[in-house]
Write a protein that binds this DNA or RNA. Sequence first.
RNA 1: GCCCCGGUGGUGAAAUGGAUAUCAUCGCUGCCUUCGAAGCAGUUGUUCUAGGUUCGAAUCCUGGCCGGGGCACCA
Length: 581
Amino acid sequence: MLGQIETALSKALTSVFGVAHKPTLTRTPNLKFGDVAWNCIPAAKAAGIEPARMATELATELSASPLISAVSTQGPYLNITVVSKVLFGTAVTLSGASGRIQTEQPKRVMVEYLSPNTNKPLHLGHVRNGVLGMALSNILHAAGHTVIKADLVNDRGIHICKSMLAYLKTGANMTPESLGKKPDHFVGDMYVKYDKLEKAAKEDGTDKKLEAELTLMLQKWEDGDPDTIALWEKMNGWVYEGFEKTMETYGFRFDKMYYESGLYKLGKDIVEDGLARGIFTRLPDGAVAYELPIDQFGTNPDGGPQLFTLLRANGTCLYTTQDLATAKLKFEEFALDRSIYVVGDEQDQHFKSLFSALGALGYDWALQCSHFSYGMVELPEGRMKSREGTVVDADDLYSDMVKRASAAISQKSGEQDDGQLARRGETLALAAIKFFLLYPAPKTTIVYDPAKSLDFEGETGAYCLYAYARIKKLLQTARMQGISWSSLRYPASLTDDDRLLALELLEFPQTVFNAAEVEKPAHVARKVLKLSRTLHRFYANQPVLTSPPAVREARLALLEATAKTIAWGLELLGIDVLEQM
RNA sequence: GCCCCGGUGGUGAAAUGGAUAUCAUCGCUGCCUUCGAAGCAGUUGUUCUAGGUUCGAAUCCUGGCCGGGGCACCA
């Protein structure tokens, strides 16, 4: 509907001024200016026309439109009031997912996210990653793109050997079952134990020996030594078993799994090829590197180009070696148009370098690779360090939040705890966690204070869920009173609160579509919150069931549409609603 | 030394170059005898700095100050 007005405006621009322009309507700052507005300055300036005159003449032209009940101007602003019947009718009909806008150029997009190491359980940082990855995938899908969700598991390397070696030295007679531990936590404990072993070794001077043992283990793994492989499989199996549960809890899902252990050698050919073509350089000690362009990356301390190392001096592979190959594999295997990596901002430079190297190799798809970068989740005292065990564990966070959420529900509703209440607590807890992580811009560093935990008031998931539940309760009460609102009639005399809610609903699909275009899930989160706020204000200020029948029915329809839209927005964010808080 | 990111009320955040910079939280004041107070209404308090571009700058450009991340054979 807003699109139709934009089209009418575009036609008027052509017919009156001979200007080709695609206008975008915005909301007015205040309803006294009308419902939506357009600023003439950019188009007027480009065409050499005085902006206020353009606004005036367009107003005359548009006033004939059957969609528009009033047009006015305010300097260069063209202010439009939409015919109420059209406004409310569209808002109700196109609510929820039925209003979604689909792209005319659907793409095949891979979203790689989570990408855990198999030496420790998932923590809050992974949760931020996973929640962003899922939301981004959902939003791209809603906009009509084909999305392949991929997980690259870092299941090999020296850090994995650390857990394995610590297990051999301190716990080889134990299993997760024997200790009653969640298996990924059991392996994570071994990783922490290694750190302790290392510290102890440094004190009694045996650290070189320990390091040699570790390197030997990695060597044995690469040589395919049966005992080492068996141990690796056993411990990784435990980790996967644990991951499975955590990922199910948080709703992280994948269409494709990549394992570094099966990929790490693949990059060697690409490196050799680059070397042969003079794109990569062999360093004096034998390592292979890509010299990063100085205009983009600057220089290193001795004035030469920065180096992006692709192969170790001893010929073994690096993460970068594997990365080159995996990038190529993704495009070939899935005929991708676009490849997105959801990875923390500490790797900004890594990805910028990787994409530069891929471009230098002549892969035209290198331009379609992008790094969805996000900031760390820190504790009040600083960064989380898994080696030192100072992390907010994903499973602990969840169970802690469920307790708090259940307690809050019990307290506020006065209900006693039962199985059903616990399930509501789970949904509320997840909504609180996910919304907390999705609402700020991704690049902000989030500080999470375990002592304060998460709020259920203010700009929170609970605020949105409560808006939904309030509507549901109201609709239920209406049904019980035998009130029906299926036949829609829109009384002329509705208030600004009704109008604001309808406008908010109308804008929603465009916001979701734009969020997909710019790949910003936070835009959807902010919009859901804004809609919820408009709803709460409406609820507090306007009676529904006690209004005259015509107004009552219109409002019930509007509220039902609002509930559908809030639920859809939250669904895109990976958040479930509660019919009852 | 180099590269990247940031600096907005006390605190945490928002704002395709566009109308009076928006929210939350904290503080203070009200509203459960009308559909659920996890809510609503009111109130105090904000764009690091010096220039520049522009009809118009929190936003773009240059310098400065402050903070965070990264700089290779880790991921």
